[in-house]
Amino acid sequence: MGLLARARPNRLAAVFPDMPDSTLLRGPETGAVMVRGRQGGTGAPFNLGEVTITRCSVQLPCGTVGHAHVQGRDKAHARRAAVLDALLQTQDAEALTRAVLSPLAAEETARRETRARKAAATKVEFFTMVRGDD
């Protein structure tokens, strides 16, 4: 679910272009979720600010229900993620994991790794200067 929520809407649409029929149970609706942080990073919670989220719940003709909460305001993205959530509970799960989740996960891992590698290249190597009087 996290993977579908984080995926760029156009990428999800590209790897999962054909949506089967589904009935909308709720939404898709856009709203705000208050993000909390912790005082000192580890202490009591405080309210940091909101993030836009679009949520959607659908039902497949077979009765399976799927839910999605995706970041941003893209309603088609929320519906697509909800349909996928439902389908991943059916016998199609294995095929969809291969066709949709695996490529999205691979792209995300590659993107994160590249970013981490670029950050790593900016790590400082300190050399202790020898003081003249020692």
Partner: peptide, 23 residues
């Protein structure tokens, strides 16, 4: 704009210790 959005809830406190830090 944010005053027009329904509040859908609140998040768990973010874990900044697990941050993917770029700096």
């Amino acid at each position: 704009y944010r005053t027009t959005l329904p509040r859908l809830g609140h998040s768990n406190p973010v874990d900044t210790g697990a941050m993917a830090a770029v700096r």
